[in-house]
Amino acid sequence: MEDRLQIMLVDDEEIVGKRLKSSLEKEGYAIEFFLTGSEALKRLDEKHFDIVVTDIRIDEIDGLEILDAVMENSPETKTIMITGYATAEIAREALAKGAFDFIAKPFRPKDLREVIIKAARQIKRD
């Protein structure tokens, strides 16, 4: 079993996936990228992820539903929400539901990396 952190990335923007996947893999994470919520949910059933990074607004299945699924099936997984427009309400709702943290679009890879490192530390501590 590899010791790399397993990260799932969900966003309806192809470029987000393309860039972050290659960038984060260089950092030593194992990344799986999904364009739709339904694909992501299907994969969540099959495999355990340490961290899930998901856009809140995707398609018919939104980020909050993915968060619900994660919290239900593997509560130890850290979920990081990407909000298109950082409204306090949605962020608060996500955090109340058990999200680890959120990050507002547009962001730099560095910003996401920092949150992931924070989550990774938390995982180790757990």
């Binding site: 987000v16 960038s23 962001f107």
Partner: peptide, 22 residues
């Protein structure tokens, strides 16, 4: 509109940052 605009902006920011960093 903000949401619409955020997506390309985010793509640009990510790509440009990575282009510079790496």
């Amino acid at each position: 509109v903000a949401h619409e605009l955020n997506n390309p902006l985010n793509n640009i920011m990510l790509t440009a940052s990575i282009f510079k960093d790496e």
